[in-house]
């Protein structure tokens, strides 16, 4: 393992911070267990993706600027979200360019190079796939679209999950198809979104898994919302929470909570 000497900045993402705090808590536990020094700069907010992808480029600019101001001084910025990290990488340079601010664009490009999804940071920077986790459950992984196609985390989550003791990883049928969340798509086109989600849920149920795991709580909120409404008996869980789980400290969700929810 190759633990960096410099402090790792946790980019919790606004949705995790507000709605799913167990996930960034798990990232802190996991990274500290692996020997990293972790900081959560309080100035942080959001990647701005909701604004950008809904067409509000101007409204995304405060998020872009704030991201740079917050994280510039760190060597590593790690977020438990392929989608939010993907937005930083893929859209912040575009927004800065369009805004006609070359200074900001240079700063954005510098920060893009050191921003990682959790699975990338573990596998590529720390060089670890067995993080010493224990999670004695049947699990299926949904490779969310932005993790897969924007951030391109590849097989890293599978390698990390495969090394978890006690875990049975079941292949999700038609795994690479979108779950239908799509940010504001889930509201603007809620009928199509639900139709897509229904097929995703059917695939999840077909696996017989207890947990459906992803690297993005936003998609998971959609899949989990459907599962919860159906009383389907499958719990959505973020990859970080499984990786943080050990024999000594099984994640709360694994031990108790019937469905995903912030209050667990």
């Amino acid at each position: 393992m190759n633990v960096p000497t410099s402090t790792v900045a946790l980019f919790a993402t606004c949705i995790n911070d507000t709605m799913f705090p167990e996930t960034p808590k798990a990232v802190v536990r996991l990274l500290e267990r692996l020997g990293c020094r972790v900081d959560f700069p309080l100035q942080q907010t959001c990647c701005g993706q909701m604004f950008t992808n809904t067409g509000y480029f101007r409204e995304a600019m405060p998020s872009v600027r704030n991201f740079v101001d917050t994280f510039e001084r760190y060597d590593y910025v790690v977020g438990p979200s392929g989608s939010c990290v993907g937005s930083v990488r893929d859209q912040h340079p575009m927004l800065a360019h369009r805004h006609g601010d070359p200074g900001l664009q240079r700063r954005v490009e510098a920060i893009v190079a050191k921003t990682y999804d959790l699975s990338e940071f573990l596998v590529d920077v720390l060089g670890v796939t067995d993080v010493g986790a224990y999670f004695p459950h049947r699990v299926t992984y949904h490779p969310t679209c932005h993790s897969l196609r924007v951030t391109k985390v590849g097989d890293r989550p599978y390698r990390l999950l495969s090394a978890v003791r006690g875990l049975t990883l079941v292949e999700l049928p038609n795994a690479q198809q979108c779950c239908g969340f799509g940010g504001t798509f889930s509201l603007k086109n809620s009928d199509v979104s639900v139709a897509m989600g229904t097929d995703k849920v059917r695939a999840v149920l077909d696996t017989g898994a207890e947990y459906v795991v992803t690297g993005d709580n936003s998609c998971l909120m959609h899949i989990g919302g459907l599962l919860s409404r159906m009383r389907a008996g499958v719990t959505p869980i973020h990859l970080a929470e499984i990786l943080a789980s050990t024999e000594d400290a099984l994640v709360a969700a694994g031990a108790t909570a019937p469905q995903q929810g912030g209050s667990r």
């Binding site: 709605m19 309080l42 989990g224 919302g225």
Partner: peptide, 28 residues
């Protein structure tokens, strides 16, 4: 959203507040 999907109830403590509590006002 809620026509077909439940929504998790917001947690009573955000991660931000947890962090501040854990680190006595924050390291940052």
């Amino acid at each position: 959203w809620t026509g077909a999907r439940d929504l998790p109830k917001p947690p009573t403590q955000t991660f931000r507040d947890w962090w501040v509590a854990e680190h006595q006002g924050g390291r940052d």
